[in-house]
Deep mutational scan, measured.
Amino acid sequence: GKMTGIVKWFNADKGFGFITPDDGSKDVFVHFSAIQNDGYKSLDEGQKVSFTIESGAKGPAAGNVTSL
């Protein structure tokens, strides 16, 4: 299901970062391709987001990332 969290950091040049889930679980990798907006796909440190957990090739990653 949907989770919420805070963006820990995001490197716009490399197109990835990490989200710290509100439930205290392990930080989740986020790739820019998972960001659900029409414009420039980037996130800001400290931004609140909702997301799902998808299993990627390198382990769990955030999917369906939407800013709240």
Rank of each mutant, 00 (worst) to 15 (best):
N11G: 04
D23A: 05
S33T: 12
V65H: 01
K26G: 12
F16R: 02
M3N: 09
G46Y: 06
N64F: 10
D44Y: 15
K48N: 06
A57E: 12
F18W: 10
K2D: 08
A34K: 09
Q47L: 07
F18R: 03
D38K: 11
V28I: 13
E45H: 14
D44T: 15
S67Y: 12
V65D: 01
D22A: 07
S55V: 15
F18P: 00
K26F: 10
G59Y: 08
H31R: 04
F10Q: 01
D27Y: 04
L68Q: 10
A61C: 06
S42P: 07
F16P: 00
S67P: 14
V49Y: 02
G15C: 03
V28G: 00
N37H: 14
F32I: 12
K8F: 04
D23F: 07
L68H: 10
A34F: 04
T52H: 09
T66S: 11
F51I: 02
V49A: 02
V28S: 02
T66Q: 14
D13K: 15
V7P: 00
T20L: 11
G56S: 15
G24A: 08
A62P: 01
V30W: 02
L43K: 01
V7D: 00
M3I: 14
G5P: 00
W9P: 00
S55E: 13
F18H: 03
Q36W: 08
G59P: 07
K48S: 09
N64K: 05
E45D: 11
D22L: 10
F18Y: 09
I6Q: 09
D27S: 06
V30G: 01
M3G: 05
S33N: 09
N11K: 10
A12K: 15
S33H: 09
F32L: 07
L68N: 10
F32Y: 14
D23N: 13
A61W: 14
P21R: 04
K2R: 06
I19W: 00
F10I: 03
I6T: 14
E45G: 12
G63H: 12
P21Q: 04
V28H: 02
D38R: 07
P60I: 14
K2T: 15
I35W: 06
Q47I: 09
F18A: 04
W9T: 03
F18T: 03
P21M: 06
T4P: 03
V65I: 06
A12W: 11
K26P: 13
G1V: 08
G63F: 11
P60R: 12
I6N: 06
G17W: 01
S67F: 14
S33D: 05
A12H: 15
G15V: 02
S33F: 05
T52F: 10
G15L: 03
G56I: 05
A34L: 03
E45W: 14
A61Y: 15
I19R: 00
A57G: 12
K41I: 07
H31G: 04
S25I: 07
A57Y: 12
S67V: 15
A62Y: 01
I19E: 00
V49H: 01
A12C: 07
M3Q: 12
Q36P: 05
G39K: 13
V49W: 01
G5T: 00
S50Q: 12
D44F: 14
G39L: 11
I19V: 04
T66Y: 06
E45A: 14
D13P: 08
N64L: 10
P21D: 02
S25V: 06
N11Y: 08
D27E: 10
N64W: 09
I6M: 10
P21L: 08
D27F: 03
G1T: 10
P21K: 03
F51N: 00
I53Q: 05
H31P: 03
E45M: 15
V28F: 05
V7G: 01
A61Q: 15
K26S: 15
H31M: 04
G63D: 08
V7S: 01
E45T: 15
Q36V: 15
G15Q: 04
A12R: 14
F16N: 02
K41T: 09
V30C: 05
G56R: 10
L43P: 02
V65K: 01
D22W: 06
V28Y: 05
S33A: 09
S50C: 07
S33K: 10
F29A: 03
V30M: 06
G5E: 00
A34N: 09
T4V: 11
G5R: 00
G24E: 05
L68D: 10
G63M: 14
E45C: 08
N37V: 15
N37R: 10
A62F: 01
I35K: 02
V30I: 08
G5I: 01
N11T: 05
G63W: 09
D22E: 08
V7T: 04
I6F: 11
T4R: 04
G1I: 09
F18D: 01
T20D: 03
N64A: 10
F51W: 02
G46M: 05
V7E: 00
G63S: 14
S33W: 06
S67L: 15
K8G: 03
Y40I: 12
A57I: 14
G46P: 01
H31K: 03
A62K: 01
S67Q: 14
S50E: 14
I19Y: 00
M3T: 11
T20G: 05
V28C: 04
H31D: 04
I35H: 03
K48Q: 09
S25D: 09
D38E: 15
D27L: 07
W9Q: 03
Y40K: 15
S25P: 05
T66G: 06
K58S: 14
T4K: 08
K26A: 14
T20C: 10
F10L: 02
K26Q: 13
F32V: 13
Q36I: 15
I6D: 03
K2H: 13
Y40L: 12
T20F: 06
D27R: 05
K48E: 08
D23M: 06
V28N: 02
A12S: 14
D27V: 05
Q36F: 09
V65Q: 01
T4L: 11
K58Y: 15
P60V: 13
T66A: 10
D44I: 14
A61H: 15
V49P: 00
G59Q: 06
E45V: 14
G46T: 03
K41Q: 11
F16H: 06
D23G: 09
S55K: 14
K14T: 06
Y40F: 11
T52D: 12
D23Q: 07
G1R: 04
Q36Y: 07
Q47F: 05
F29M: 03
V49Q: 01
V65M: 02
T4H: 09
L68Y: 06
D13V: 13
G59E: 04
L68F: 06
P60C: 05
L43E: 01
A12P: 13
G15W: 02
D13M: 14
N11Q: 07
F51G: 00
V7A: 02
D22V: 08
G63V: 13
I53F: 08
P21I: 05
T20K: 11
D27H: 04
F32Q: 11
S55Y: 12
E45P: 15
F32K: 13
G17L: 01
G5Y: 00
S50L: 10
G5Q: 00
K14I: 11
G24H: 09
W9L: 04
Q36K: 12
I53E: 03
P21T: 06
D13Q: 13
P60S: 08
T52Q: 07
G39S: 08
G59F: 08
